[in-house]
């Protein structure tokens, strides 16, 4: 009886699979998604409306749902998981609840993912930003080549500064923020090596007041263009707006926050990578791949504020640099 039942189910599944294929042939670029919605769980360190890192993954899920249909993708999230132990508990609990894909969106979650993934071999884990899959077959790693966007922003900043002094408000000298800032400095220097780019790291991802004072300090020291990374920069953007200094953003489109001064933002489109992950899952590959969001694959986009009055040629130069990075004629040192 048992054997018969098993055989019948296999036949039934085969028929269903075949009919699914013939009825609706998947488009070549689209990931193969079955009738059952895929269930994705996300764990983020800060709030998903932070106008920065955590929001970037939430925006990606919304985009993915919009593209593939709400009936195909279901997602849940745990935000503000800045305590790694809490995040680990959330990751494990999502795995136990049978979510298909679990995204641990924070480089601090690496050891948790490494520990939990082997217990759930059928679940896809992905964490970022990093390049380390721990050699496990169900862990993907993803990161953003934020030095590329930083470079483009840097080129524009160099063309806009009149005082030849540019200020950078960074959080802690590590990871994505450092990559972006190093790229930004290189971009400025590629236009004019005599421009003074001053970098401050305030030692915190959340101290809005200190970020504001860092911006004020740059402005009194003569800077007329500012940039910065991580969620505490809203304090710095506020001061840039008061002083009428240009601001370059990263991690999310910050134009809506200060439309008068935000020139451009580097925005992540993680959905490009999520689609890859979905496609691989349909092919039976659950992990082991290192993904990078960059200008070439569209995982990273420079969004220029359409209403900002900036001199002729700056946007054109930015597009030129983007093309150069994509076709390889510009390399970032």
């Amino acid at each position: 009886m048992n054997k018969l039942f098993r055989m019948l189910s296999i036949v039934l599944i085969a028929i269903l699979a075949l009919s699914a294929c013939t009825a609706a042939p998947a488009q070549p670029e689209e990931p193969v998604v079955g009738d059952e919605p895929l269930r994705i769980a996300i764990v983020t360190p800060s709030n998903i409306n932070d106008l920065a890192f955590s929001q970037s993954i939430s925006d990606a899920m919304i985009a993915l749902q919009g593209e593939l249909g709400k009936d195909k993708i279901e997602y849940v999230y745990s935000e503000n998981m800045f305590v790694v132990d809490d995040a680990a508990a959330a990751i494990r609990s999502y795995a136990q609840q049978g979510y298909d894909i679990i995204l641990a969106h924070g480089s601090q979650y690496g050891s948790s993912v490494q520990e939990i993934a082997p217990d759930f071999p059928d679940t896809v884990f992905a964490w970022g930003t990093t390049v380390d899959t721990f050699g496990q077959s169900n862990i993907h790693a993803y990161e953003a080549a934020s030095d590329q966007g930083g470079f483009v922003n840097g080129v524009m900043a160099a063309l806009l500064t009149k005082t030849k002094v540019i200020g950078v408000v960074g959080p802690i000298e590590t990871g994505d923020a450092k990559l972006y800032i190093d790229g930004f400095v290189a971009g400025v220097k590629s236009v004019d090596p005599t421009i003074d780019v001053r970098v401050t790291y305030i030692g915190s991802f959340s101290d809005v007041a200190l970020a504001a004072e860092a911006a004020t300090t740059h402005l009194s020291a003569g800077a007329d263009v500012l940039t910065g990374s991580a969620q505490m920069v809203i304090g710095a953007i506020g001061k840039a707006q008061e002083a009428g200094a240009y601001w370059f953003g990263t991690q999310a489109d910050q134009t809506s926050f200060a439309p008068d001064v935000v020139v451009a933002s580097q925005v992540y489109h993680w959905e490009v990578i999520l689609k890859e992950i979905l496609k691989m899952k349909a092919e039976g590959v659950l992990g082991g791949v290192e993904f990078a969001a960059n200008l070439e694959n569209g995982g990273q986009v420079i969004k220029i504020n359409p209403d900002i009055p900036i001199p002729e040629g700056v946007k054109e130069k930015a597009n030129e640099v983007i093309q150069g990075i994509i076709d390889g004629s510009i390399t970032i040192p």
């Binding site: 503000n80 959340s206 101290d207 007041a209 504001a212 505490m232 304090g235 506020g238």
Partner: peptide
């Protein structure tokens, strides 16, 4: 003093240990 006088914005956990 932070949210409506010095910074004019609110963000979660913005006091950052103060």
């Amino acid at each position: 003093a932070l949210s409506i006088a010095l910074l004019n914005v609110f963000q979660q956990n913005m006091t950052a240990g103060q």
